[in-house]
Design a protein around this nucleic acid. Structure first.
Lengths: 180, 180
DNA sequence: TGATCCATGTAACAGGTTACATGATTGT
DNA sequence: ACAATCATGTAACCTGTTACATGGATCA
């Protein structure tokens, strides 16, 4: 059910079409919750049917009509109710850690190569987050409301990526002997 | 498809029944890959059908027959093939971070309460991991093969939990003003 | 000439959760 | 008396991914 909440949250800022939402879920919000456009269109349909969002068709020539959606009062209430419920911790499901467990069988050099590849991903994520943090939130102590929330979740992203990055370095160090 | 690989990996150590696998996926391996018993029985059926594991029925009186499964040569080959494929980074999907993004609407005190609740979870996880690390792997530099792999993934767990714990403390500090 | 952007969707499938079902044995 | 352990499963449902479908406008 949480995709619904992520969509409603995104619509707190702006009225957005499915297409625009899909782009957000590919970038900013997408760092914390991924969703494809197919999922989003389907969820928007349900949210509209149940009165949590309201779409209004904007006629266009030579391309499909745009349907921007706005959150309704009922939608806001739903977000507030959800905010009061406990958040289950995200379940970790990581191929790479399963591969670590299989080190009895798989060659250490192969595992090490995979960890190095993963390291690149986390390094670029971390760099992106830190650039945003420096540019958008240079004075964290002065933040309030929406901006404070964004800063706090960005801090989570930064700590998360740094943890994986440091782990990758440690793991490669430990595997070097084994693979050498 | 990755549940299949997690099961095959677990079967590298021991022949196990679905029931025993379910328990492992509720503890040790379960720290990195969760699965319910229903999923496991279904996957075992498919793995057996396709020749990656082999089950043998052990008759029992007064309770259902046990069916321990062993990994086959074909199963080992499949694990090796999988080990050579790149591991997609785990996608983060966390309610709590979406709630952070909705701080324009939801009361800071409510968010702070949720983060504190989450903090407890990560603190207890971290403590459990560190206890295992100290007890089972007191000399990390001397490890090889299977034990080295377990230690490396445990290190990931420790870094992951510590990152969330530190984040929770930082977030609560930032929210105290706002909520106060 | 080919790629990308805009803008919407359908359909099939794979993965995962929740509820239901049975039934003796052992521990509190 | 009640819960947990052992031990297997079925069925319905929800969530998420991949493939397919359309079609003009703009840019390299």
């Amino acid at each position: 059910m949480a995709l619904a909440h992520a969509i409603l949250t995104t619509l707190l800022d702006d009225r957005l079409t499915g297409y625009q939402l899909a782009k957000r879920f590919d970038a900013s919000i997408g760092f914390f919750w991924r969703a494809s456009h197919q999922q989003i269109y389907q969820e928007l349909y349900r949210l509209a049917r149940d009165g949590f969002v309201k779409g209004s068709v904007v006629e266009q020539v030579d391309r499909p009509n745009r349907i921007p959606y706005a959150i309704t009062a009922k939608g806001r209430r739903r977000l507030l109710d959800w905010a009061a419920e406990p958040s289950p911790p995200a379940t970790v499901k990581d191929d790479l850690l399963v591969k670590c467990q299989a080190l009895a069988l798989i060659p250490p050099a192969a595992l090490r190569a995979q960890i190095l590849a993963r390291r690149v991903h986390h390094a670029s994520r971390l760099e992106a987050y830190e650039r945003i943090a420096a540019k958008v939130f240079p004075r964290p102590a002065a933040l309030h409301g929406k901006a404070l929330g964004q800063h706090i979740s960005l801090r989570a992203g930064i700590r998360y990526e740094r943890a994986w990055l440091d782990w990758a370095d440690e793991a490669c160090r430990l595997l070097r002997r084994e693979a050498g």
